[in-house]
Computed example of a mutant assay.
Amino acid sequence: MLIKIKKILKPLLKPSINRLQKLQFEFFFKNTTKEIRRKHGYCLILMATPCHGNLGDHAIVQAQYNLLSDVGLRDLIIEINNSNYEKYKDIIRKYTSSDDIIIIDGGGNLGTLWPHEDDKISEIINLFRFNKTVVFPQTCYYSNDSDGEKRLQKNKTIYSEHANLTICLRDKQSFDFAQRNFSSTKFIFVPDIVLYIDKVGRGSVRDGVLLCFRKDLEKVAADENINRIKDFIRNHNIKYDETDTVINKNVSKRTRDEELRKKWDQFSKSGLVITDRLHGMIFAAITGTPCIAIDNKSKKVSGVYEWISKLKNIKVCDDMSKIDNTILDLYKSNFEYDKSFLNDHFAEICSVFTSVNNNENS
């Protein structure tokens, strides 16, 4: 009987609950921005951060916080998750000052590969076209067909109408493409922002091989090749486990650090990671874990690898049938990651924010 009553009441109460939640968000956003501006003059609005279980995307947000903290801007950040952005974008726009800076997460979302994400980024750029806007390091990929051309022309118009837009790109192929096709927009060539994170390796005893392969539209590793690798590992009396950088539950701002630590601990305990995920490779790098990375459809794995090719524990391979010797060479090797060799490259994106901060303090 109670269950039946709940089923009846739920749709009746939902509009009232939604209105209350909207009022709560409006109160939060209006007053938080007002207080930050009172102290600092402007806000950094970190827009539409992930709620899903892709830990690569959450590591991007974590790294953005780290960088912004290092340039003295941590207290200016207001994080708006994707769910709240979608529901309350009218409120966000209403209470955003022209002095506020809009920050859009990095990732692999520009172009046709993930159209919904590209649409969202373009929408934010358009809605806040009079605000200084910074897009953290992205990969862009436009298909060579009518859909790709249509999306390219749409984004050309949106980007060109923005008053102060900076887009960071994390691989040379994306950077060169953007320079050719978006002449009025400022682009910065910088590493994937997750490489800004270091000292997350736990110094654990390493054992076994960790397989981390995609299951979505960017998957390139054929099942027969994965099975052949498993047979090779078993034949050498090495145990293996399977994982993914995408977990089957939502992750919030509150649980982000815990979920990332658990995943990084798993990588830290492995003797070798074999992956076709970009952030599988990067998680291996920042935890000092030996890794063989397989390139993917958008070539973002090999593109980002160029930044860390000096790391002896990371190898990229185009042909999975030729990695047997590399498995044995890298297995249980000991390495330590220190991001300092990338500091000069990160300096340019830091300067985008430090110039504003210096103006505030002058």
Rank of each mutant, 00 (worst) to 15 (best):
G208Q: 06
S174N: 04
I294M: 15
L46A: 06
K186C: 07
N54W: 07
K22T: 05
S174G: 04
P115I: 07
F346E: 07
V61W: 01
S362A: 10
K332C: 15
G53K: 05
D57Y: 09
C350K: 15
I294F: 15
F130A: 08
T287A: 06
K156N: 15
T96D: 08
R37H: 06
N225Q: 14
V134N: 02
V352S: 10
R180G: 02
A284Y: 11
L211I: 03
S69G: 06
Y142H: 02
H116M: 13
R19V: 05
H162Q: 12
I292T: 06
A59H: 02
K87W: 12
N334E: 15
S321P: 02
L46N: 12
P191N: 07
N31P: 15
I167D: 00
E35L: 14
I45V: 14
D176T: 05
N313I: 03
F136P: 03
V356N: 04
D244T: 01
K6P: 04
E35V: 07
V273G: 05
I197L: 12
R180H: 13
F189M: 04
S146Q: 09
I36S: 02
Y240N: 01
K6M: 12
I5M: 14
V356H: 06
D319L: 03
R256N: 07
L12C: 10
K300Q: 09
Q21A: 12
F175A: 00
L73K: 00
F29S: 00
E306I: 00
L165M: 10
L113H: 07
N131V: 03
E224T: 13
D100C: 04
G280P: 06
K269C: 14
Q24G: 03
D329P: 05
I124F: 06
H52F: 09
V194H: 03
N164R: 10
K22F: 01
Y65L: 09
R151Y: 02
L152T: 05
R38C: 10
P191V: 06
K312Y: 11
H116W: 11
D198Y: 04
K22D: 05
L76M: 08
K94F: 08
L67N: 02
I327E: 05
A59P: 01
N66S: 11
D344P: 10
L113R: 05
F128M: 03
T243M: 12
L278Y: 12
R214F: 06
D265F: 08
I238Q: 03
S333I: 10
